[in-house]
């Protein structure tokens, strides 16, 4: 599967509705359009990976985890700059994510400035 960045879409994958929706609102207030997915499977099934310029994903989710999603995308040679947000991330997870090419690893709750800067940086690549 090839992966060309056609637009500058920000995809948010989090199973928690309130976190996902408020995150979208936050990005909207910064002028960044985004799309939410309630699971890794939903995101992969949407066929919008190609147009995704930045992926924000939770790590622990029912079904496929955020790290697994990253692995699947890497395997498909679809390297999307990824920001992990997690409620219970440990150091090991953090290293694993960054080794696999993550641009940021943020524990919840996170600072909006850092997140938005990271997203902007990803989009500017």
């Amino acid at each position: 599967m090839s992966c060309k960045k056609e637009t500058k879409l920000v995809a948010i994958v989090d199973d928690d509705d309130s976190v996902r929706c408020t995150l979208q609102e936050l990005l909207r207030s910064a002028g960044l359009p985004s799309e939410g997915f309630e699971s890794a499977e939903a995101f992969l099934g949407s066929g919008r990976q190609q147009e995704t310029a930045c992926l924000i994903t939770d790590i622990r989710m029912p079904g496929m985890s955020g790290l697994e999603l990253q692995a699947v995308l890497n395997a498909a040679r679809c390297k999307i700059p990824t920001i992990f947000i997690t409620g219970h991330g440990d150091e090991e997870m953090r290293f694993q994510a960054l080794r696999a090419g993550a641009v940021e690893f943020l524990p919840k709750p996170f600072d909006d400035e850092i997140l938005i800067e990271s997203v902007r940086a990803a989009l500017d690549r």
């Binding site: 976190v19 408020t22 609102e25 936050l26 207030s29 947000i85 219970h88 919840k108 709750p109 909006d112």
Partner: peptide, 14 residues
């Protein structure tokens, strides 16, 4: 507990 707190922080930032 962290989930709604995260959402609240997001909301406040927004």
């Amino acid at each position: 507990v962290n989930q709604p707190i995260t959402a609240a922080v997001n909301g406040a930032s927004t």
